[in-house]
Design a protein around this nucleic acid. Sequence first.
DNA 1: CAACCGCGTTCCGGTGAACGGAACGTCCGT
DNA 2: ACGGACGTTCCGTTCACCGGAACGCGGTTG
Lengths: 269, 269
Amino acid sequence: MTKAVNTRTGLEIGAKGPVDKALELLDALVQPDGPHRLADLAAHTGLPKPTVHRLLGTLAANGFATALAGGRYRAGPRLLGLAATALADSPELRLARPVLADLRLRTGQLAHYSVRDGDTAVHLAQSEPADTYRIPLRAGGVVPLHSSAVGLAMLSALPPEEVTAALDSTPLPAVTPHTITDPEAVRAALDDVRIQGFAVDDEYTEPDVRAVAAPVLGADGLPVGAIGIIGPTFTLDDAGVALYGPMVRAAAGLISPSNGGSSPIGLVQ
Amino acid sequence: MTKAVNTRTGLEIGAKGPVDKALELLDALVQPDGPHRLADLAAHTGLPKPTVHRLLGTLAANGFATALAGGRYRAGPRLLGLAATALADSPELRLARPVLADLRLRTGQLAHYSVRDGDTAVHLAQSEPADTYRIPLRAGGVVPLHSSAVGLAMLSALPPEEVTAALDSTPLPAVTPHTITDPEAVRAALDDVRIQGFAVDDEYTEPDVRAVAAPVLGADGLPVGAIGIIGPTFTLDDAGVALYGPMVRAAAGLISPSNGGSSPIGLVQ
DNA sequence: CAACCGCGTTCCGGTGAACGGAACGTCCGT
DNA sequence: ACGGACGTTCCGTTCACCGGAACGCGGTTG
């Protein structure tokens, strides 16, 4: 049933070379739900079983995968180390973390930072309030650009042709009854975002959950990501949105002119 | 001058297939010091320039690398998302984080968790005290097994043949004047570790810095990682080691019987 | 101003490694 | 005892990786 399609990203076909397949497999390896079995990985990536087996051998030889007893596989130590390095050294993330903590304290909401990956937004970091009213936000998780506050925030700072590409590629699936699915309605919403400086997700993604986000801009004026807050509608009501919106916008501004050429900040060693 | 050798892990030659090269390149991509230039990546991985160029194209097509203006490259959004997922969903890390925070509070020292990657230890997570007396510990960083507390802790729980393999593969480089370089001396130290239940790094890695660590054991009794604390000698003196050692050992015990087959804990969704 | 150097990039024909259908051994559940 | 699902091995085909050589460009030097 499954074709040569990435179940998570939904990319049509693309992958041809061995490297593409290996990357696809890496992606499948780190997905939630513990150690994976070879058959699951094969189904998830759409690759033939022997191919997956051979690739896992290569990954394991390099420490990117670990074979457990009983034919289970999990992410290897070198992959975890690489992951830790990537997240620790990313310049924006380094700047974003304290800002996220501050934003969380000032709003009492879950604050998070996301970047764009094609026509989806990927959550990279978050700062959760202690009394967390179970907001589902998984690190590494993805949401469509058109149905999330961070997505709309990034779209609002993208040139029109990129917006068109993002809105016309996917059929704008409706995640909840509130999700905007009409491209024109999205474009209208983007105008509001540009005027106010922040985007609002009013139960587009999850019932009874609202979000507010603002774009983080690079030196070239293009969005590199977005910072936002997420909370239940009874906490993040209209007054809350009006109050916290500017705070989110200001937080995004704090990390914005930060990625241009090289990082001027002295490294810790 | 650089041969086909990974500068970071020092693996002799290994890499042959395209997948191996791509993984090597991924590793180089996430190394510190901001966006990398093609020539640097080529020198770092020992791969020919055109090969690096082509591989970067493949990585970029999959969102694992991003090409910046001026021929610079950095880790792509999908790689960062993958990294966030891997670290968030790792069962041991999920267990380790609260334990690290508790250990830091009770000892006042930098607490960290590391896993073994061949004959090195990789730092994955840490919890820093507020008044951090600049301890250099980079997430994703690696240290030799024989000259670190976490390394000795893991070695102490490994079967003899694995210890032999680890100690005889590298020439046991001396990082500081205090580093133990004699394999027999290491083995003797391991006996102490097994008796006490924790390992001590007395300026083996860094002058004026001590560390204490204990192995985290899997269901099969083999070490999956180690938990430890690091601090300056004037804080982590002999009394400190005697006092905190058992705490570290207890902390390691808290996460130990946790990885066997499947994770019995219900996932958050 | 010209010569030079280092860089990123493109080209292209040989070749070796990836490929995956088919088949096998094993371990379950029935 | 049987059936099914899974991990694993085999092997001949083929295709995409490979990388030396060459190019265009920008910066620097003499």
